[in-house]
Every structure is written in C-alpha cells, then in structure tokens.
C-alpha cells in the first residue's frame, strides 16, 4: 500500500469557461460542459483538502456502514474456504522484513527471545513466548485476505483465538479497545512503529486469531513472523504483523496519531469492514 500522495493540487481554480456570446450554441455547450467538469473536479479536490468536509460530511458513510453492519451481522462468521482455494503464494504486502536491529536479533535467534507482552487495563499483565502460545488450544481457518487496494489472497492460518488471551489477562471494566504494537518501523529513520486496534467485541470473535502458522508452516518473516493478527471480517491493514505487545485501553486517542492505527492516522477508516 503506497503512502497517499502528498496532496499539493486542487487549489488551482479551474479556468473559467469562456462563453463568447457570438460563438455557436454547440461550442458554447461544449465549453460550458468542460468548464463545469473542471470546476466540479477542482471543487471536489478542494473539499477533500478541507478540514471539515471529510471529517463532518464524508465520514457519515463510514459511520452508517459500521452501524448497519453491527446491527445486521455483529456475530457473523467470515467465509471459510477449502485447501483447493488456497493462493499458490500468499502475497506479502507492506513491510516484508522489518529493518530494526531489535527485530533482526529476534530473527537471528529464531524468535527464542521473543515474547508477546499483554498489558494495559488488565488485572493480570502477562507475557507469552511461542511455546506458551502453541500450548494453548489452537484454531485453523482458511480465509480470504482482502487488501484495501482491491486484491484478495486465500491462506490457511493457525493460531490462538485472541479471546483466550483476553480472558487470561482479565480486562478491567473500563477496557474498550485492544491495541497491537508491532516491530516494523514505518519511517526510514526507524520511528513510527506499525500499530492497529480493534474493539473488545471484535477481539472476542471466534475467528480473531493470533496466528503463528501460515499454510501449515511457521509464519514467514514476509507475512509477519513470529505472530500476526487475523481479524477476518476486516481489510488487510487491520491484520497487524510482527506483534510485540498488546495493550488494552479505554481510548486510543493518545496513541500514535490518535486514530487507532498507522493507516488510520494516514486517513484510512478505522472500521475496515467495507
């Protein structure tokens, strides 16, 4: 997924259609339409760049969709597929190999020094290494991964239902969101680690996994080793890779850019069910 283009344009007012009284009606019409089209485009770009329009008007779409989806199918299961549907190669997107020295050390040690920290608004902060996660009851599911760009790939995931982990750490009454902190820095200077968040209901969905296997093999580095999130009813950017720490919070306003995830901070929708 590319960063969204830096948006310079849109400020150039479209040239006013020159409507000469003497010109024939047809060219007047054509000029009028072209001018109207250019004005429409320039106007749309101006609205896109305004502070209020995306926030107060366009976001209504996301809010409506989310509300209807929650009403229609809060507990629905994502479609599951068969081995015959598996994509020959499961595409790696975004970070394929986190550059941080900490992560590279973990890779060199085959993740023997890695452990997932679970903390925040919990009565019992815990940490789980790979052996501990593999010792918990596992679930395997063949699901479709849908990227926000438009492509889909089908893979077989094995992991621990997140609900089990949440249950063990005992969230406090005010915990509302689960935040996933990742090892991959998103800026070339090594800052802005990837992060994501979902609400507690989504975290308790039976298909929401902390996956350590893809297609029957340990999760490759390109796909998020040693552990990644699977939230099967939402888009690819929700499926955080290279998990390091899980934090339960009441609000994600003070984390990162405050919108609940790396791509959300870049303007993508927090609710990625559409």
């Amino acid at each position: 997924m590319d960063r969204r283009a830096e948006v310079p344009g849109g400020k150039d007012g479209s040239p006013p259609a020159r409507l000469l009284v003497s010109s024939p009606r047809r060219s007047l019409l054509r000029g009028g339409l072209a001018g109207l089209g250019a004005a429409l485009l320039a106007g749309c770009d101006r609205l896109s760049n305004s502070a209020w329009f995306p926030e107060q008007v366009l976001s209504l779409g996301e809010r409506l969709s989310s509300a209807v989806h929650q009403t229609l199918a809060a507990k629905a299961m994502a479609q599951e597929f068969t081995e015959a549907d598996l994509s020959p190669v499961f595409r790696s997107n975004g970070t394929a190999n986190p550059e941080s020295s900490e992560y590279q050390k973990l890779v060199a040690g085959e993740f023997s020094d890695w452990a997932l920290q679970v903390s925040g608004l919990v009565e019992q902060p815990m940490s789980f290494n790979l052996a501990a996660l593999r010792a918990l009851p596992a679930r395997t599911q063949i699901t479709r991964h849908d990227c926000v760009e438009g492509w889909s790939a089908i893979g077989k995931w094995t992991g621990v239902p997140l609900a089990q982990i949440i249950e063990q750490v005992k969230p406090t009454a005010n915990a509302r969101f689960v935040v996933f902190h990742c090892a991959d820095p998103m800026e070339s200077d090594g800052t802005h680690p990837y992060y994501e968040s979902i609400d507690l209901a989504e975290a308790s969905h039976p298909q929401t996994l902390l996956a350590y296997e893809l297609n029957g093999k340990p999760l490759p580095v390109a796909n998020g080793a040693p552990l990644r999130l699977r939230v099967e009813r939402q888009l690819g950017y929700k499926q955080a890779k290279y998990l390091m720490r899980i934090e339960l919070v009441e609000s994600f306003a003070s984390i990162g850019g405050g919108r609940g995830g790396y791509w959300e901070d870049e303007g993508y929708q927090w609710y990625a069910g559409i």
């Binding site: 969204r4 849109g10 896109s48």
Partner: peptide, 23 residues
C-alpha cells in the same frame, strides 16, 4: 487524474467519497 476524485492518487479519500455517495 482528469476523471478521478480526488484527482491525485489518494485511495483513502476516494473511499470516503465512494462510501458517502453510495449511501
């Protein structure tokens, strides 16, 4: 870019427009 909204590449904003006007 002459026929897209927004004009420059901007997927997240295009989705905002699309889902609002879909409703």
């Amino acid at each position: 870019s002459a026929v897209t909204v927004p004009g420059p590449y901007w997927l997240s904003m295009a989705r905002n427009w699309h889902f609002f006007f879909a409703w």
